[in-house]
């Protein structure tokens, strides 16, 4: 089987996501061992899926760390063995008996206090870590909000600019509710578009705005689709009697495809 064809079948994605049977997975691994392209594809897809998993981050409760570490037996100091050894060495000597008793007692007391302070310290440490993480989460959230806000503010400036004329574009096909607004600045001659509703174009296509002046269509630029796109700045045009939007190949066309006209303004 052709390697390119194999990769584009979608089997690598299913392998990475863990949705293949054992036999099918084995087959993919054999392909990867034989073809570097397949192995590379797996690695890249894996990185993306790992990133996707990361998007769902959630802080576990703070005490969970200590619970797990205890369960794994990590960080446990064995005091009992030490006591037993001290006892053995001095067991036969009467003179040391009191000394042993005293030092065992001292050992118990210090053990108790070191444990007590250790747990206080580690509680504080975990709380501190949790707070740092929470702070980081908040900083990120604030950054996102700030980013959104800047975009909105930018949109608002365009909307409020007295020099900007607003023109409404409606669907060519009157049964559809497609709509957009064009803003055109009489001084800077810049055109902006704010898409209200348009169908999502196929990957290879893009919408393009046209300024129609004296019956001649002039390219006013292509624009992106998606949520939160807001008001997009397009090209400078000298003026227009009418505005129109057509669907064109990605990057736009020199002349509009008339049967792909989606929106038009009133003349």
């Amino acid at each position: 089987m052709d390697v390119k064809e194999y990769i584009s079948s979608g089997i690598v994605e299913l392998y990475v996501i863990g949705s293949l049977s054992k036999e099918e997975a084995k087959e993919v691994e054999q392909m990867a061992a034989a073809h570097k392209e397949v192995a590379d594809e797996i690695r890249k897809t894996q990185e993306l899926i790992d990133g996707y998993a990361m998007l769902h981050q959630r802080n576990p409760p703070t005490q969970l760390r200590a619970q797990i570490m205890e369960k794994l037996g990590a960080g446990v100091v064995n005091e009992a063995k030490l006591e037993a050894r001290i006892k053995n060495i001095y067991a036969n000597s009467v003179a040391y008996k009191y000394l042993v008793a005293a030092s065992v007692a001292a050992l118990f007391i210090t053990t108790f206090f070191s444990y007590f302070f250790y747990s206080k310290w580690s509680d504080a440490e975990t709380d501190y870590t949790a707070m740092l993480k929470e702070k980081a989460v908040m900083v990120t959230n604030i950054e996102e909000v700030k980013y959104d806000l800047e975009n909105r503010y930018h949109d608002l400036l365009i909307l409020r600019d007295r020099e900007n004329r607003m023109i409404t574009l409606n669907a060519m096909d009157s049964t559809k509710k497609f709509m957009a607004r064009v803003y055109w600045n009489g001084t800077t001659r810049k055109a902006y578009i704010d898409v209200q509703m348009l169908p999502t174009p196929p990957d290879s296509m893009q919408y393009q705005l046209w300024a129609i002046k004296a019956g001649q269509p002039i390219d006013a630029g292509v624009f992106e689709m998606g949520d939160n796109m807001g008001v997009q700045e397009l090209k400078q045009v000298m003026g227009a009697d009418q505005w129109a939007v057509t669907l064109e190949k990605k990057g736009g066309s020199p002349v509009p495809t008339m049967n792909q006209m989606y929106l038009i303004s009133k003349s």
Binding site: H56, N59, P61
Partner: peptide, 27 residues
């Protein structure tokens, strides 16, 4: 831990169960 806990929680949708699974995972 936050990445693992996030994925586990997303699947089991319950903190108590997610903590158990998290312990199992680390063991």
């Amino acid at each position: 831990s936050s990445a693992l806990y996030g994925v586990i929680y997303r699947i089991v949708q319950n903190d108590e169960i997610a903590e158990d699974v998290m312990q199992e995972a680390f063991v």
